[in-house]
């Protein structure tokens, strides 16, 4: 008997479940089909402006930095300003994501943009988020032909662009957005939910930023002038 059959047989035996119990099979089918939403904290259920403010507040609480720009066209300048403020070389790594490619990178003088998966020497990676999650200050990113996962982890600085209209109240709303995009039960190869820069408390419980992933996470929220930097 294969390991598979042996384990399944033991599980069925222990549960006292016959092999072809229609009621059990139906319960499982229904649960998977309906995918019921459980308890969703009230925290994120807010009007748009407050929701975006909560996103910022929660992200800053976990040591991410957040700035707002009006238009997608402003992103390259914001990135260049970030690099200057941190004394970083004028070079960024990004995937071929069309939302990023559509931005006027050429307008920023002497900023090198490298396309493709990250290599160990890249200091700054730029990604575009599928969504922001206000309840925890999280950004959701997915992998694909134009979105290498290594950009999210190898560079010391990770800059993530989020559209204000994509900032949701809670994780469940983001999951249903994902299901809409990929189809129910289908997934991108990797979904990254990122909440702040990497950290470790493994030495004497002292929390330190910049373990193996990025030391800094910088979020650029594009808000079409709806919120601005008045927050």
């Amino acid at each position: 008997m294969s390991g598979r059959e042996a384990i399944l047989k033991k599980v069925r035996g222990a549960l006292g479940a016959p092999l072809d119990d229609a009621a059990r099979a139906k319960a499982v089918r229904q649960r998977l089909a309906k995918a019921p939403t459980g308890v969703v904290p009230a925290r994120g259920r807010l009007p748009e402006e407050e929701r975006i403010a909560l996103f910022r507040q929660m992200a800053e609480k976990v040591s991410a930095t957040v700035e707002h720009v009006k238009k997608t066209g402003d992103v390259p300048n914001a990135v260049a300003a970030y690099l200057r403020s941190k004394n970083l070389p004028a070079s960024v790594r990004m995937g071929g994501d069309e939302r990023l490619r559509a931005m006027p990178w050429g307008r920023v003088k002497a900023l090198e943009t490298k396309t493709g998966p990250a290599d160990p020497d890249d200091e700054v990676g730029v990604s575009h988020a599928l969504a922001g999650i206000a309840e925890t200050g999280t950004v959701a990113l997915y992998s694909g032909v134009e979105n290498p996962t290594t950009v999210n982890f190898l560079p010391e600085h990770h800059i993530v662009v989020v559209d204000a209209k994509d900032i949701e109240g809670d994780l469940e709303t983001t999951l249903s957005r994902l299901k809409k995009r990929f189809g129910k039960g289908k997934m991108p190869r990797t979904l990254n939910l990122i909440t702040g820069p990497s950290r470790s408390g493994d030495i004497e419980q002292k929390l330190l930023l910049g373990a193996h992933g990025p030391r800094a996470l910088h979020l650029i929220v594009v808000d079409d002038g709806r919120i601005g930097n008045k927050l």
Partner: peptide
Amino acid sequence: ATGQDMSVYTTVSTGPRRPGDPDG
């Protein structure tokens, strides 16, 4: 576990690298 609202990285992985994927 640690008193965080959410850990830094929650990663959902499904299968190997897809056709055309640059990494994985």
